[in-house]
Design a protein around this nucleic acid. Sequence first.
DNA 1: ATGAAAGCGCTAACAT
DNA 2: ATGTTAGCGCTTTCAT
Lengths: 341, 341
Amino acid sequence: MAATLHDVARLAGVSIKTVSNVINDYPHVRAETRERVEHAIVELGYTPNLTARNLRSGRTGAIALAIPDLSLSYFAELAAAVIAAAEDAGAVVLVEQTDGDRDREIELLKSPRLKLTDGLIFSPLGMSQEDVAFLDVPYPLVVLGERIFDGPADHVTMRNVEAARAATEYLIAGGRRRIAVVGAHEGELVGSAALRMQGYREALDAAGIPFDPEIIGYTTLWHRSNGATTMRALLDRGAEFDAVFGFNDTLALGAMRVLQESGRRVPDDVAVIGYDDLDEAQYSIPSLTTVHPGQDWIARTAVASLLERIAGNGEASPPRLMLADYRIVERESAPPAAATR
Amino acid sequence: MAATLHDVARLAGVSIKTVSNVINDYPHVRAETRERVEHAIVELGYTPNLTARNLRSGRTGAIALAIPDLSLSYFAELAAAVIAAAEDAGAVVLVEQTDGDRDREIELLKSPRLKLTDGLIFSPLGMSQEDVAFLDVPYPLVVLGERIFDGPADHVTMRNVEAARAATEYLIAGGRRRIAVVGAHEGELVGSAALRMQGYREALDAAGIPFDPEIIGYTTLWHRSNGATTMRALLDRGAEFDAVFGFNDTLALGAMRVLQESGRRVPDDVAVIGYDDLDEAQYSIPSLTTVHPGQDWIARTAVASLLERIAGNGEASPPRLMLADYRIVERESAPPAAATR
DNA sequence: ATGAAAGCGCTAACAT
DNA sequence: ATGTTAGCGCTTTCAT
């Protein structure tokens, strides 16, 4: 079996306290003693039992990340950034998938499995504003996304309304007037879809362009296939438009594919803009103009904020809202104003 | 602070053993006692301290998954499948990213951070055959991929040679004779690239088609951009071919984009086949014909095999090699023989 | 500078 | 059917 402090102590002829001192870099250890202990550690291949250490210290050095589904590129890229940021801070990440299911999300929040971790970074999808009370949990929590606001926990998210407005204005500046939407959510109030819709309408209003419900494509999920299906439905009902705002990149890519199949040229006949700036947005044909919403910053900020709360040892301080900056990434599917047509 | 067994016992007026019995569904507890204890548990909001339980039992209920990078779609989809399979088995997954760096991979194998888990599913990329000894670790380990064979651990992987041969034969059956490769690795012996290359050559040999180094595109990484760059290099040096075998889907998609930019039609001028069957292969234009290598089966098998080893409590039994079945997924970028040209 | 010993919260062997 | 108690391996007072 694995060696313990006692084994090392016995071999080095000291007490376990001394071994512990050596391991934890306690300064007052005689050089000669330290060397003997270090020798014993190497000889026995001793490595500390983290579970025991955790029990004693009440910390595990692990944080949990709960997201809907890793096979969605957006969340995969987010998780990659969170894990990298956590590693830099010496923490390790346990990933849970909720499938965006409200019940699973709520269950997860109270799951004792979380006891394995010091805190949680939580990206809800099924829960909504009325579930805000479930976020009042007895451990450090950072919430991502826009399903829930004014909760009792720290919140890191993006400027959806502003960014969506900027995306729409970008299309308008490029001379487009009939801008279709792909990915609207029927009746939603606070989700990403609702906020991006709001930004879209603000831009139209500001430009004096009337809102036309005929060119709004609704969908439930935001996968590639939904983008394709929604665009097909728009075309089938004879909707006319010269631009498309996909509420995320995968929707935009799915929609773009259907547009091209139908014989329309992108961007000549229809300009397309997405949202998320996924890696693959660079490699589609044409490459996808999109909104870069600052995922990296979100990931780093979420980790830093969570670790701060953990280090703060449950001292209550008011929940913070942190907003990432965005920018429009100009690519081929919607060239900048000067280059249009 | 969180309630403990003692608090519950005191409130219920029983000993901690009885509380423990209730929690662990030990049968011999009087119904009335059980009820009292359950009441106390609810009242105090007691949840067991998993760290303490782990220290006692020597198990954590968590497994580690080490992959190069979650932002690579293949690994994201693999991780999604592993986490789902683990959850079904009641285990939780800690994800580590190695960046495919040999030193980090080796370091990770001996990292005490793994003590937080019961075992490891490891997908090396930087390590190679000569590092096989590092796989001899004192905890349950399952290795994925084809960097290392005949190691001391269970190994779950795919039939690379056969699948690559089948992919090449599929193109040949479609009437193609000059089949370019995108993603070969210079001088590699046992990696995925080498194995797929071997399958490619076997297919050529069987069909009596001479091997032409001129149409082999080398690269180091397998990202989208490498596919694009490699294809550009092939075109720049005037290579002529009527088909492309991308050693993975992202390479194939990157290459396909460059082909189309250069004015070549896919599949009419050049047929393209990939490998991995990523979700996005369905949504490219044209959709990508590819090899489905059985990732789901690999994930499920890896988890099951690891949990078996963990349950087996370190009893040595010979390492097993498990191979997933593959199949060709016929899509537009390389239509089946009957439909060609 | 080092040692002895308590205890983190739990499980399980043993006792009643 | 339930209680007592000894650890799991570590950190950490408190002594010396």
